[in-house]
């Protein structure tokens, strides 16, 4: 049985796994932050991860593109198993885009330069081509007119959309989002979520750490609840919100809804 069968909303293109995490553990020094994580993500699937602060959500998705190192267990991304081999890490990072809570745009570069940097220096694309692609994605996130500005001159919502465009310019097959809207004011949250919904409709594989339950209900194929470094519950959004199985999930949902 694949999780696709349960999918409550939207469709998944295939049941071919693009991310596979098996028996993964991670420690920060003595602190056991991730415990026996097992997760299989299919191509085109949208997964929302939620859970209380400090439960290890960020750490888990950061292991997928090796911003954090796991100690035991297996992580296979797009057929490549993650280990210390730098070449593999580079290949995986090209396939996996990431959007951060605090945008992390490069303040010394213009919006367009932010977008073109990686295609030029990592994919070795000619500058002209990279700029075309950069403009194309800036149009897609609806801020082509800001291309020549610096990130410091944009609003938070605009910055986050630039960050999304910047990742998309590398044409990743997977996008990771770590609380992309939690540093934003309410009216800006909407514009970022709309961008993400459009992205989901285009069939991108997405793992999104967020507490935006509306987003989870409309977009996710599966919702994952984490607590104290473990995946406690994993279900399609409808079941997850209407009849959560675990007490801890119920408690968490009652606190945020």
């Amino acid at each position: 049985m694949t999780p696709t069968d349960k999918s409550g909303s939207g469709t998944v293109e295939s049941d071919e796994a693009i991310i596979e995490i098996a028996g993964m553990h991670k420690w920060y020094g003595e602190f056991h932050v991730l415990k026996d994580i097992n997760l299989r993500v299919c191509k085109g699937e949208r997964i929302v991860v939620c859970g209380p602060s400090g439960s290890g959500k960020s750490t888990m998705i950061r292991c997928i593109n090796r911003l954090e190192e796991h100690q035991t267990g297996k992580i296979i991304v797009d057929g490549i198993e993650l280990n210390d081999d730098l070449k593999r890490i580079d290949r995986i990072r090209r396939e996996v885009g990431m959007v951060f809570q605090h945008f992390n745009l490069f303040p010394h570069l213009t919006v367009l330069e932010n977008c073109c940097l990686a295609p030029i220096w990592v994919r070795r694309m000619p500058r002209k081509k990279a700029e075309e692609i950069g403009m194309q994605y800036l149009e897609r996130v609806k801020i082509p007119e800001q291309a020549k500005k610096y990130p410091g001159q944009l609003s938070g919502g605009q910055q986050q959309r630039v960050a999304i465009a910047r990742s998309l310019c590398m044409s990743p097959s997977i996008m990771l989002f770590d609380e992309p809207t939690s540093a934003l004011d309410p009216e800006m949250i909407k514009e970022v979520l709309e961008t993400m919904i459009e992205l989901a409709e285009s069939g991108m594989t997405m793992i999104v750490v967020t507490h935006e339950m509306g987003f989870a209900k409309t977009v996710a194929n599966r919702v994952i609840f984490m607590d104290e470094g473990q995946i406690i519950e994993e279900n399609d959004p409808e079941t997850f919100f209407s009849s959560p199985e675990h007490d801890r999930t119920k408690l968490f949902l009652s606190q945020i809804m």
């Binding site: 911003l67 730098l86 990072r93 990686a118 220096w121 990592v122 990742s167």
Partner: peptide, 25 residues
């Protein structure tokens, strides 16, 4: 730290992220 992480996440290696992102700033 976010600047280092964003550079890494985009696939820039150590020298490229230093030369293009970190050192200019």
């Amino acid at each position: 730290r976010g600047q280092y992480e964003a550079a890494k996440a985009l696939g820039l290696n150590y020298w490229k992220s230093m030369a293009l992102i970190i050192l200019p700033q």
